[in-house]
Design a protein around this nucleic acid. Structure first.
Length: 198
DNA sequence: CCACGGATTGGCT
DNA sequence: GCCAATCCGTGGA
């Protein structure tokens, strides 16, 4: 399993978004690993996209989006949730990919504890572990502390997944936004049970 | 199963 | 002061 390099991230946000499907999102803890297959993402492009946090320029909150590809951008919203993004492209582009859903692989017991504070889960709770952007952050214990870390370091990174066949990719409008609502910039693996909607 | 609304805080106008 | 790239509990069918 090979960690993705900086070159992977420093490309067009839509290419990166589609290529992230099927890749393995990894968090290394001192003695354990949490990981899962990325099955749903959304692209945000600050140069043309009013719904991107970066659309109106650099602020304290969104500055990581302007640091160029390969950083993790984490934001806090709705007074209680965190969401994780992969910054793409070059410095000043203000582009990122929101990780919307993951299929758990390693450390499922840790995710279960982080999400529901118990070990034995119902079938519905198993699906509910990571089928949404804020659920992923809770399962992986990602908060604002992880905002701005480099994905080429060893704590949080994304790994290639050579064993995966080419899944059918679905494309749709993005979820939960009020501006630029018609842009078809959500990408997901068709028929994967962990995709958040439809 | 689905629709609805409350939670709760920090960023931005 | 407004409101958000969300989630979950509630209530009804």
């Amino acid at each position: 399993m090979q960690k993705l390099s900086l070159d992977f991230y420093k490309r067009d946000v839509h290419l990166v978004a589609k290529d992230l499907l099927g890749k393995i999102f990894v968090r290394k803890l001192s003695d354990k690993i949490i990981s899962g297959k990325i099955v749903e993402v959304e692209a945000y492009d600050g140069s043309v996209d009013e719904s991107a946090h970066s659309f109106n320029g650099i602020t304290k909150r969104n500055q990581v989006m302007f640091k160029g590809g390969g950083f993790l951008y984490v934001y806090f919203t709705y007074g209680m949730h965190y969401c994780a993004n992969v910054v793409t492209g070059n410095v000043k582009d203000g582009c990122a990919v929101l990780i919307r859903a993951i299929e758990p692989i390693d450390g499922i017991d840790i995710m279960a504890k982080n999400r529901f504070n118990k070990k034995i889960l119902s079938e519905k709770e198993k699906i509910n572990l990571t089928n949404g952007p804020a659920k992923i952050c809770q399962a992986f214990n990602i908060t604002i502390k992880e905002n701005g870390i480099s994905l080429t370091d060893n704590e949080i990174f994304i790994a290639d997944n050579k064993s995966i066949h080419i899944d059918r990719i679905g494309i749709s409008k993005r979820i939960g936004i009020k501006k630029s609502v018609d842009l078809p910039w959500r990408y997901f693996i068709k028929d994967n049970p962990f995709v958040s909607k439809k």
